[in-house]
Design a protein around this nucleic acid. Sequence first.
DNA 1: CCGGTTGTTCAGCG
DNA 2: GCGCTGAACAACCG
Length: 243
Amino acid sequence: MPEGPSIVILKEALQPFKGKKILEVSGSSKIDIQRMKGLKVEDFKSWGKHSLICFRGFYLRIHMLMFGTYRINEQKDAVPRLHLGFKQGEINFYSCSIRLIEGDVNDDYDWSSDVMSEAWDAKLAEKKLKKASKLNVCDALLDQETFAGVGNIIKNEVLFRIKVHPKSIIDKLSSKKLKELVKEASNYSFDFYEWKKLFELKKHWLIYKKKECPRCKLPVKKDHIGKGKRLTCYCDNCQVLYK
DNA sequence: CCGGTTGTTCAGCG
DNA sequence: GCGCTGAACAACCG
């Protein structure tokens, strides 16, 4: 559930609760959850993979990590990490990381680095990449400071779309190719978002977890590469190695 | 039924 | 203090 587009979908699903008062709080989260009792939710926001529930003077930062889930107006057969009950309806989060942060969310987040934000700034991302010139492209795409919201699936699909080998080095890409990388990181995220809403995300995967390259039909290579040794799927034949 | 993973943080080490 | 590595967390799918 956890790449940026899924978090945008969550944020949208939460909008009916905006401005509503929390009547009941429970859950296994270690934060002081009773603090929310009786408070109105000021807003639901998101930044990359962060879900933000904003109150006056503080906010909750919820990260789904790998296995987090949620239910709106229903429950799972599990103890929620956080349950928020309203006069009408409820929100339940499971196996996620929750932090309570004092202050205003706008002081902590730079919305222009979120690939799905209206404030997304492609030029700024290009500048950040030029500073991180020795990075492998597969690591650069997962850097949340530059591409907040991009996850492992998006990484693989973006690199296949722009025909760049994951082991390529950032400063060996032409300026044109770098622009393409930045553009597609945001662009593919919006495609992901639309497909996810239609429950047909997997249907559109071109390279991620595929057996053969849809273009040349050669077997797809699968490797655990980059800083986090994340699963990387690519076509040695179609994706150019800039090194 | 076991192995793998749409992610991040932190401890430990050199 | 740095970067690197591996562990920990945790739930579902194939």
